[in-house]
Amino acid sequence: MVKTKIQKKYKSILGEKETEHAIVLIKDFFQLALSTELNLTRVTAPLFVRSGTGVNDDLNGVERPVSFPVKSMNEERLEIVQSLAKWKRLKVTDLGLKPGFGIYTDMNAIRPDEDLDAVHSLYVDQWDWEMAIDEKDRTIFFLHEIVEKIYRCIKRTEFFIYDRYDNIKPVLPEHIEFVYADDLQREYPDLTPKEREAKVAKKYGAVFISGIGGKLPDGSIHDGRSPDYDDWITETGDGHRGLNGDIIVWNDVLKAPFELSSMGIRVCPQSLTAQLEERGMEERAKLMFHTKLLKGQLTQTLGGGIGQSRLCMFLLRKAHIGETQVSIWPDKIHAECKKKGIKLLQLK
């Protein structure tokens, strides 16, 4: 993993107290905009789920969840969620939601295997959302329509903050650009995926990179994706594969690409089977979640997550995610932040 580094000495535009006030403003404004734009109803989310059910998100397939035994349940093990990618689909199915309607929630996760840097922490907070869709909507074009709606919410929130703090100037372009991971690999074959992201994010200001997780023309993948939630194998009909992607903006404070959201159309029984086979994980088909999906018992959905602390970090022009959330950091990060003039919210 390439770590995102703080480039130079830095001074926050807002003080700590102003920052805390601004975080509340952003969160309240954005979630209302998002729920209105996508027809989402807020639901309450779990902090932990049962082990061995296939419900927890294992991200790239290798990250270890935090787990613990429960005395009152005969020592059955539960796991702290790493995201709610699959739980949300179960919830949409349980609620019986019709296409065009969905849910959103505050997701709080712990990811102990995260490589810590300026944008990655042990604690993850995001708006997790999921909406029911028709089978006919399993297209890259429909996905891009939803991306544009989410981007409009981000743009409106940026102006909302500028309207209250006029020294935080808007920087996002009017429109988000759509690119494909395989096209980027062909255009920049000698660059790493992170370097390709930097090229297009700096060029356009905001991009949606489609086809994350599937094999590229050279056999590599742009970035890791578990095989059992996003569909990254289905052909799009325009010469590409993958019905998912990431919203990435150019972060001028960090001089780096900055991921705000990961999302996608969820796997159908056929794409789940194909993706499990490609990753050599066919044994997962026996788990509760996967069994339901393969039997056609789950609603077809589209969903994703939008980082709360990351969005606040970007809109408030912060240099470290520890300025918009409280986590735990190693001594070397505390020392680096102190040297660069960064005040973390977590007390040393």
Rank of each mutant, 00 (worst) to 15 (best):
V2I: 09
I6M: 04
Q7C: 10
Y10M: 04
S12Q: 08
L14N: 04
D28H: 06
F30Y: 07
A33K: 12
S35A: 10
T44S: 15
G54K: 01
R64H: 14
E79P: 00
L84Y: 04
K91M: 15
D94V: 08
Y104Q: 03
A109S: 05
L116A: 04
V124H: 09
Q126M: 12
W127T: 03
T139G: 07
T157H: 01
K169M: 14
V171G: 13
P173G: 04
H175S: 12
I176P: 01
E177Q: 12
Y180K: 13
A181D: 03
R186M: 14
E187G: 12
E187P: 04
L191I: 04
K194I: 12
R196E: 03
K199D: 05
A201M: 06
K203G: 08
A206Y: 03
V207Q: 01
K215D: 06
D218L: 10
D223T: 11
G224A: 15
S226G: 14
P227S: 06
D228P: 10
D231V: 03
D231Y: 03
L243A: 01
D246Y: 06
I248H: 02
V249K: 03
D252I: 11
V253I: 12
L254Y: 00
E259W: 03
C268A: 15
S271K: 05
T273P: 08
M281T: 07
E282H: 09
E282G: 12
L287C: 09
L287Y: 12
K295C: 10
Q297V: 07
T299E: 10
Q300G: 08
S309W: 05
R310F: 07
L311D: 02
C312F: 06
L316N: 01
A319D: 01
Q325G: 07
V326G: 05
C337G: 02
C337A: 05
G341I: 04
K343N: 12
